[in-house]
Simulated assay, not measured.
Amino acid sequence: MTQVAIVTGANKGLGLAIVKLLCERFDGTVYLTSRDEKRGQNACEELNQQGLTPKYYQLDVTDSESVIRFRDYMKNTYEGIDILINNAGILFLKDAKEPKTYQAEQTIFVNFTSLVNFTEAMLPLTKDGGKIVNISSSSGHLSRIPSQEIREKISSPELTLEGLRRLTDLYLDAVKRNKEMEEGWGESPYVVSKVAVNAYTFLLHRRLKSRGIIVNCVHPGYVMSDMTHGAGDVSPAAAAEHPVRLALEPQAGGLYMWRNGTTVPWGGPDPRGYIDGKPV
């Protein structure tokens, strides 16, 4: 039975580095997916020149028709999926000119809503005992949400996916009313999106325990990439190590792994600057 791994948003940066490592270490078929077909095919050719053989499929996780096409292709081609690494995402930097409401809507839609919709579409194809890894951030630490009431709601073990979606809707409504700071969400859409990704990771882990599917999230570090306009202090190759480790090695589920391989509690004090005495 062929083993299959899928990486989203993988034509460059961290996603491409993850595909490369999987091709080197995973005994199965690795799918490099991307929204931009030409860039995705070029990335595959780049890896081919290094003796690696990923497969390519055009996938836009923000487009429901694209997700359905990909799901149906995988269903008709393979007996199931072993590894899913959700890497696709966006970040508006501080100097972004787009209106605040637009930034918030797009960040939540791409980083959280589309990740959830794609994952839910692929769950029926995911083999029992499979692995799901969500690329998160230090911004996903629960302490980054100022309001204790919101933190308690979003970290509740009783939280459902429907409830989590409602919370992100409440956040977007607060932004539209220019009340996000007053109501305790903070000023960063990226923080809210990654906190929501982590919350989804942990509730999905609880849902899938009976199937033996391991669901984890990882903060890979501040990665040098196009998304950060070349800023960052971690190369894509170094940042790929821990997502691939979570995907390939025996692991517990419901973990929030830090960029140095340490698992940190989602709640509690913000661990930035305290892991190995280094800023993170």
Rank of each mutant, 00 (worst) to 15 (best):
C217D: 04
P54Q: 02
I108E: 05
G28L: 08
G254Q: 00
V67Y: 05
R206C: 00
Y171S: 13
Y31P: 00
A174Y: 08
I108C: 06
L167E: 10
N260H: 07
E45W: 09
P124S: 12
V218H: 02
E187L: 13
D128Y: 12
K209M: 11
R207H: 03
R25G: 10
R245G: 14
T168N: 11
E46A: 15
L47T: 06
L204P: 01
S64M: 11
N117G: 13
S114E: 05
K179N: 13
S155K: 03
K12G: 00
T107V: 08
Q148P: 01
D276R: 05
V7N: 01
E37D: 08
P279A: 10
V215K: 01
T113K: 10
M74P: 04
H141R: 12
S193H: 04
S34N: 09
K97Y: 09
D173A: 11
Q58I: 11
D169K: 15
M181I: 15
A96M: 11
A5I: 00
G40Q: 04
E182F: 12
E65I: 11
S136H: 10
Y31S: 03
E98F: 12
N117P: 06
L22Y: 06
T107C: 06
N42C: 12
R272A: 12
A231N: 15
D226G: 04
D173T: 12
Y274W: 09
N178A: 15
I90K: 08
V110I: 14
R144F: 06
K209S: 12
G129Q: 08
E158C: 06
L16Q: 00
I150M: 09
D27A: 15
N76A: 13
C23I: 07
L115I: 03
D60S: 05
G28T: 08
I132M: 12
T33Q: 09
D27Y: 11
F70W: 13
T2V: 13
D276P: 00
W185C: 14
S155H: 04
G277L: 06
K38C: 05
K209I: 07
L59S: 09
Y222T: 09
N111C: 04
G212P: 09
T62P: 07
